[in-house]
Computed example of a mutant assay.
Amino acid sequence: MSTISIVVPCYNEEESINLFYNEVEKVFTQMHDSNMPYEPEYWFVNDGSSDNTLKILQDLQSRESQNVHFISFSRNFGKEAALAAGLTATTGELVTVMDVDLQDPPELLPKMIKLIETENYDCVGTIQHDRAGQGKVRAFLSSAFYRVVNWVSNVRIEPNARDYRLMTRQMVNSVLSLPEYNRFSKGIFAWVGFKTTYIQYESQPRAAGKTHWSMSQLLEYSLEGIIDFSDVPLKLATWIGAISFLLSIFGLIFVVLRALIVGGSVAGWASLVSIVLLLGGIQLFCLGLLGNYISKIYLETKHRPKYIIKEQK
């Protein structure tokens, strides 16, 4: 009987864990009744939760020790680290990544398995058909992010794609072969290639609890994704600097000719200050972009581990 490893990052999800486990178990029971001989291997990753998430995972693992495992970090390292730890621990022939809040419908798993078995896909991903309940501003910013990242990057990331996907062992091993500290999984899944297809589904509400992603965290995560998979911002900063330099040359020529032809003038201090502030802002913007790339290099050269495991069963 084949095994499907299920990687489930958890951060303060005490209300969702048992709900998630019960729903996924229902799907596998239905699969067995339909002659789909797969057994689940759960890998819950406690990402430094401050609630009772770890206690619930310990209780669940003690009850279902044959197929339920958990990893607990020493502190909060972020979802990307949790995904990396979970993928590293898996042993199944197929591996799926799912959110514990049940916004990733477990009932899609049989369809995803059939696509891999019958169409020889290496990965079946999922796309939210809509963004109901997210708010217009967040939905707009999300769409804008995908447009920008696909414009500046050589790797195409499917718009509105979720981390929820089913992958073959070969693809998972390829993902794990990338050693970088700064990880953006959606981009990594796309970068490694392999034959991939996507299925769409309607946006699902959380089964319990509240989202832990604030608007500022989403914006920071989006910026990291763009920087991790493109050097276009650096090139853009170079072009902005070059254009500003050319404009300043033309401006200097204009000032000299004006002084020679019509004479100087003490007027125009306000416009001069505005121009200086504009150029100063452009310089700081370019330095900020450069600083982001340097900070990424700095973190990579430290060779620190992506996470530290305190407990694993």
Rank of each mutant, 00 (worst) to 15 (best):
L83E: 05
P40W: 10
K310Y: 06
G280W: 03
Q170L: 08
N22G: 03
G187D: 04
Q103K: 14
S216H: 11
S5Y: 10
K136F: 07
T118G: 04
C123S: 11
L218W: 07
Y21T: 00
T3V: 03
T238R: 15
L19D: 07
G193R: 11
K26Y: 06
N52V: 00
Y21M: 02
L94A: 02
Y307H: 14
A144K: 13
R138K: 15
W269D: 06
Q30H: 13
S142A: 08
T168Q: 06
G133T: 00
F28T: 02
S216V: 02
I71C: 05
A89G: 05
I188M: 13
S185L: 14
S142L: 08
I249W: 02
F140D: 07
P233C: 05
I282W: 10
T88S: 13
T126E: 04
R156P: 01
V100G: 06
Y198G: 05
L166H: 07
D231Y: 09
K302A: 09
E25G: 00
E14V: 07
F73R: 13
P106S: 12
L19H: 09
L178E: 11
Q312D: 03
P106E: 10
L290Q: 15
A259Y: 08
Y42K: 08
Q61R: 12
V175A: 08
F184L: 03
I17M: 04
L246Q: 12
L246G: 05
M167F: 09
L109K: 10
Y221C: 04
S244M: 11
N173K: 15
S271F: 05
C123A: 03
T197I: 01
I309A: 03
L287Y: 10
V273R: 12
E64Y: 13
I249P: 00
Y146Q: 07
